[in-house]
Amino acid sequence: MFVTARPVRAALGAACALVMAAGCSSSDDSAPDGGLISVTTMRGAFLQPAEIGPAWAAPQESADPQQMVSFCGGTSTPPQAPPGAELISSSASDEGEKGAQTLQQTALVFADAASAEAGQLLLRTVADQCAKSSEVPATVTADRNEPAYTETLEVRDLNEGAWNGFVIIRNKLYEAAHPGTAETAVAVLRTRNVVLVDTYAIYRLDNASPSAGFEADWKRLVGSVVQRVN
């Protein structure tokens, strides 16, 4: 999010939300159970800030831990977590004077593969209903001052080894008077009883050009997580 009246750190508060709600079906037992992936395994697969880069750290601000990340962007409401999943997450950010990067890793751990498949299908339905383009007017409130912007969205199929699903790519371009961009990739991948929602975003201030490394960066980060799960 690009906000002119506050520092970058405050501007990214909403974007750096952690999703740490407790579900109702999966246990924290790390022992294998019929090929199921445990909560402990997924916690261990998440990238830690120091593993991403020297400037990365845990964010100082977080939003509602019960809330999923936004799929459709703009002024849309984030989707509800699919029923029957235990949610665990980890978040990191790299913030500077001219922009920032954020990574939100969320795992939905289900009791079985069929439940995970159904949960991913619900999330795909949400993604397919997102508007492909939206124009959002400037927003001015007591704690937020965001210029007008246009955001485009694309949904692609995605496969990473044994993980299959889709990725939502959003590109936000702010009005010329307040140049800036925000590029976001929300990867939703499933294997066995787990759905991984891995969200990478890069924000550029005073620069209307897209990030040249965005595509390679989100693919590298997603791949690093899924390769850790046997």
Results as ranks from 00 to 15, higher is better:
residue 138 A to C: 04
residue 60 Q to D: 13
residue 82 P to S: 01
residue 96 G to A: 01
residue 124 R to Q: 13
residue 159 N to F: 02
residue 122 L to H: 10
residue 158 L to N: 04
residue 107 A to E: 06
residue 120 Q to V: 14
residue 75 T to C: 00
residue 141 T to L: 01
residue 151 E to S: 12
residue 133 S to Y: 06
residue 129 Q to R: 15
residue 140 V to A: 09
residue 115 S to A: 13
residue 99 G to S: 01
residue 129 Q to G: 08
residue 124 R to C: 01
residue 123 L to N: 09
residue 105 Q to M: 08
residue 130 C to P: 15
residue 127 A to V: 08
residue 148 A to C: 05
residue 131 A to L: 12
residue 82 P to L: 00
residue 162 A to C: 01
residue 98 K to L: 09
residue 72 C to G: 10
residue 151 E to M: 11
residue 120 Q to L: 11
residue 135 E to F: 13
residue 158 L to A: 12
residue 103 L to P: 02
residue 128 D to I: 07
residue 121 L to H: 14
residue 107 A to C: 09
residue 128 D to L: 15
residue 138 A to I: 03
residue 97 E to H: 00
residue 125 T to P: 00
residue 84 G to E: 04
residue 90 S to D: 06
residue 140 V to R: 11
residue 118 A to I: 10
residue 160 E to Y: 03
residue 161 G to L: 06
residue 131 A to Y: 12
residue 88 I to T: 02
residue 78 P to T: 03
residue 152 T to V: 14
residue 135 E to G: 10
residue 65 P to I: 04
residue 123 L to R: 07
residue 154 E to W: 04
residue 126 V to C: 05
residue 75 T to D: 07
residue 124 R to E: 12
residue 143 D to L: 10
residue 146 E to A: 03
residue 117 E to H: 11
residue 126 V to G: 10
residue 156 R to K: 14
residue 137 P to L: 09
residue 161 G to W: 08
residue 117 E to R: 14
residue 158 L to P: 03
residue 134 S to M: 14
residue 135 E to C: 04
residue 153 L to A: 08
residue 125 T to W: 09
residue 102 T to V: 11
residue 139 T to S: 05
residue 78 P to F: 04
residue 72 C to E: 08
residue 114 A to S: 13
residue 111 A to T: 07
residue 65 P to T: 07
residue 135 E to I: 00
residue 153 L to I: 07
residue 144 R to G: 01
residue 161 G to E: 04
residue 125 T to H: 11
residue 86 E to W: 05
residue 92 A to W: 02
residue 103 L to W: 05
residue 125 T to N: 11
residue 142 A to Y: 08
residue 105 Q to L: 07
residue 146 E to G: 01
residue 95 E to H: 03
residue 155 V to L: 13
residue 93 S to N: 05
residue 110 F to R: 12
residue 157 D to Q: 11
residue 108 L to Q: 11
residue 142 A to V: 08
residue 154 E to H: 10
residue 86 E to C: 06
residue 62 S to E: 12
residue 105 Q to K: 06
residue 135 E to K: 15
residue 125 T to R: 15
residue 140 V to P: 05
residue 108 L to Y: 09
residue 142 A to Q: 10
residue 95 E to K: 04
residue 132 K to D: 11
residue 119 G to M: 02
residue 137 P to Q: 14
residue 74 G to H: 13
residue 149 Y to V: 08
